[in-house]
Design a binder for these strands. Sequence first.
DNA 1: TCAGAGTGCGCC
DNA 2: AAACGGCGCACGCTGA
Length: 592
Amino acid sequence: MFTSLINTNNINIFTIQYTLVSNVSSLNSALQLLFQAEVLAIDCETTGLDPLTDSIRLIQIAAPNHPVVLIDLPAIPKSDRSLLKQLLSNSAVKIAHNAKFDWQFLTLAGLQTSGKFFDTQLAYKVLTAGLKTSSSLQNIVKKLLHFQLDKTQQISDWCKPLTKAQLHYAAFDAAILLDLYPILLKKLKQAKLLKIARLEFQCMPVVAQMELNGMLFDLSRWQILGAKLEIEKTDALNQLKQLRIASSQMSLLPELTDAVNPNSPQQVLAALQAIGIKINSTNQSKLVSLAAQYPIIQALLDYRRLSKIIGTFTEKLPQHIHPKTGRIHPNYYQLGAKSGRFSCRKPPLQNIPRDQTARSCFIAAPGYKIIKADYSQIELRIMARLSADIKMCQAYRQGADLHRLTASLVTGKHINEVTEEDRRLAKAINFGLIFGMGAAKLQIYAQVKYGVAMTLEQAKAFRKRFFEAYPGIAKWHENIKHEYTRGIKESRTLANRRRRWVNKPRLSELFNHPVQGLNADINKLAMVKLSNPLAKFKTKLICVRHDEIVLECPETKVEQVSHTLHNCMVAAAQKFLNPIPVVIDIKTSNSW
DNA sequence: TCAGAGTGCGCC
DNA sequence: AAACGGCGCACGCTGA
């Protein structure tokens, strides 16, 4: 099916030309020829995957109509790399696949790449957001150039003297990017995605630097916290044991129920059913409302919460402290979510419990402060902007508390009589209903997340009143429903980010994407705007979380940096939300 | 025995 | 007619 031999613009799979340079004179004469090129494809082969401990073995630079330059970097003394540095920061478009990886290695080798970037992986992800497709170089080459890329050398030993096969592979990997570039560029233009792709490209070095920065972590404080949680968990487990013995007396098979594993939903369900609790599943939403009635259920919920925190964070986070920096450097994937949001892994810092005692273990280095800024109610503001609901827009323009307003509208109370519980109720209503939640889920959601109990009838009534109170939202939902019934192929955010729909999407997904996606667009734009100020103020971006940006800043510059951070975030959001005002909450302290 | 789907839950 | 969305990770369980 796939041709093994193909002539593309620049290369032939068997006749690819390359020049291996291992001394400064041959390096510089090879580089001289590349300064006229408007595009440069760059790739690095490294001794491993960790930029903080591994190093570059080979740099490949490809330009149209030139042999690929393969630079044996360890053979070039640091003092002889000035022309290379110059090339990597010139005005050419730098093309790379997963450029973050190469940027990090090059930066730590003192070869910071700057200027315009074009990341073939990000470009492909922007084009295919929503589809189930791999964005590996191999797959992209297969889909766009119609041949099978041989990656067997990728896992070869790059620490030993390089073989001809390795050099050929390395040259090819860089050269192929020159062929992908015009195709991806054309597709981006045709799909009106070039702008959003450029936002991603500009964001890339900011993300790359953020990973290198990492977060400083107070291990001893964390361990004290962990020990406390461990005690609480044991308490909960003991309660579960005692109560299980009681339950086993009612069972015909005590030897089985004695062995109930609290981590097994199946066994727990059977055990709870055996003592007469009528449930069909043991998830939080089914159990919360029964916790007051049955102590064992409270113990189970406690146990689950604590073992989650201990298993996922308390025990795992210390393993991610980097021996070289003493900091935690997670992996951020700027297009990790189909909506355009970031995802974060190893460790998942975007999921750290919001509990202040946990977060206070992430600390500023001596002489630094942590500045944390988040967008206030960004999704609701986006919703106001998209729906142009008159009451919602007016409330935000007047600086009113939207949750209080909703509380007043759905309960019929005067705005001054709204209680704290009413306001929590309104939060559940606002956050839930904009994405199309039904009455049954609203009832559960309000109980689980906000501790507000209501009957199904009340939930139905609240739902009805919400859409009567905000007819603009109801209309916006109607419009999307209309598109939905006609069969919709894609959704766009205001920044024109696209998400494609493969099968018939759920209606709620259609409600969600324009909101969640624009939130991501805004946060990324804010990061890009911050890029230069961060360098100027020697401040580190250390974490981003959907609507939140965390910086580590020299103590002496806190005021200027807070001010700049505020301005960048406001400007990014204003670009899309105008005339809805944007509010940023900023806090400065010694820890997160 | 081990990959993978399923359940459950931490975050926004 | 009714329907929140987006992640990553740990765990028990299933089936080839």
